[in-house]
Structures are given as structure tokens and as C-alpha cells.
Design a protein around this nucleic acid. Sequence first.
DNA 1: GTTCTTGTTATACTTCTCATATAACAGATT
DNA 2: AATCTGTTATATGAGAAGTATAACAAGAAC
Lengths: 134, 134
Amino acid sequence: MLVRIDFSSDEAFYVQLKNQIIMGIATSEIREGESLPSVRDLAEDIGINMHTVNKAYSILKQEGYLKLDRRKGAVVCLDADRLRTIEEIRFLLKGTVAKALCRDVSKAELHELLDEVFEEFNGIRKASGADSIQ
Amino acid sequence: MLVRIDFSSDEAFYVQLKNQIIMGIATSEIREGESLPSVRDLAEDIGINMHTVNKAYSILKQEGYLKLDRRKGAVVCLDADRLRTIEEIRFLLKGTVAKALCRDVSKAELHELLDEVFEEFNGIRKASGADSIQ
DNA sequence: GTTCTTGTTATACTTCTCATATAACAGATT
DNA sequence: AATCTGTTATATGAGAAGTATAACAAGAAC
């Protein structure tokens, strides 16, 4: 999986890494059960410190994306805590809708944008041989 | 408008304030043309420093939500820069969809959640006498 | 014109996070 | 035994967050 850190971004390295791994899981670039590189290897690959990678991994573990093990960093999606997930998504949508309403972006337009984003994901998934989302 | 800072939150005070103001504009609790309290008054009201409030106001100005003036902090939504808004919303949705896909939350469920959030906003708008969104 | 309030800017200080670096430990693999 | 893994501890430098005090310039009120 390709990870690239934007060193001139104002976003923390560990946050960038965390988001890119989530994106990788979402697009099936990394699949359940597959291992991520070791903290030391990945750190050297992308040019940041071991502890920064470890921080990203730890948070992803805490948020239910990874299960860490000595000798492999196994990917574990489907935390089964569906209620918490729904609550998180509702929270994120709330912020997005608020910004949309301030700019007179309509409900219909938001639904359209949501569909477009889904299509974008399907494009990436198709390229890596994953099933599409209907 | 009611603003409340969570002092035990890990979210920065100026970010909390910024988000609550955006939420206030979205729910029509604050309407276009209306003034927010002065940085000094609001700071004292919610128990934080003047500069922290000023930071929130400055960012809101930069992001096109406020137009600042000596003697009033006028609310100005509708930055007209619609393209930038759409791009921002698309970016936010991308992150939300990614998290949803990791947890097997379907496209249909996301659309439902979006409708629910809209209904939530309409409830608040109705209570403050604003028009509903259809 | 004077006074008051406004946003704005400058400076200084403390506390915390981010990122790095070096080092060591314990479990698992080879 | 040697090696690699996640994990923890400690230290350091850079920057952000938040506070504090102070001053400036433009508009409002008297």
C-alpha cells in the first residue's frame, strides 16, 4: 500500500498516516487479515520516526481498525460495535450538513455529492479488484 | 446565542467556539446581518481569554462566515465561492464514507443517516422560527 | 473634542502536543 | 542464540494553545 506524508501540511504526520490507512481499508487496498508493515519499516519507508508510526497504529487499534500483535500488525475491521460507528458517522454528518446549510447547499445536492463520492470509491475498488458497493 | 465550552475536551477552545458558531448559523439561531458579541464580552461570558475568541472570529472571517468590523462582528454567510464550498463538503464526505465502508455501513444507510441529520436540523430551525429545508 | 468601545496587533509566559532520538524490555520467529 | 516484533521509558527541540498585559486606530456617544 502506498503511503505518502505531506511534510508541508499543517496536519500532524500521525493523523495523515491514520487517515490514509483508513482510506486503504475502505478501498480494499488493504484487506481484513492482511498485515501492515512493521512500525520500523514503514517509518523508514515514508521518512518519519518510528514512534510517530506507532502512535498512528495505536490510535487505529483503539478506534477498532487494527489488532496489534508482536510479529505482525494485523488489519481488523468490523469492530462489531455498530452503534458507536453509527454515532460517529452521525456526528461527522452533522458538521458537514451545518457547513452546507450556511452556504445554501440543498439536501438534494448533498445526496448527489454523497453518490458521487461513492462512485469515486467504487472506481478505486474496481481498479484493485474489489467488489463494488451498490 | 448559547455558547458553551467543554473545558475537559481535547478539542481546542477556539475550534469548539468556531464549530458552535457555524452550528448557530446553520440553525438560523444567528441570522445573516446579525452581530455576535464583542470578543471581550464573549470571552468573559464563556470564561476564556479574549485572544482565543479573536482567533475563532478571525478563522471564521477567513473561511467566509463572518465579516469583521470595528463596533460589530457582523455575520456574513453566502461567500458566493460555491465551488470551494462544494469541494470542502466533498472532502468531508470522503472521510465519512471511508469510515462507513470500513464498518460495512451501506450507501443506503448513509443516505438515511443524512436524512435523519437534516430532520434534526429542521427541528431546531422550527423551534427558532426559521424556514424548514425540504 | 473627549470618552468609550470596538477589532487588531505586539509581546511574553506557561503548558501541552508533535516529532525526533536513543535505549531497553518481552514475546515470537528463525 | 540471534533477530524481529510491538511496547515502554526518557529526553530534547519546535511549535501550538491559552493566558495576560498593553497599546493602537477607527467608529459611536456624549
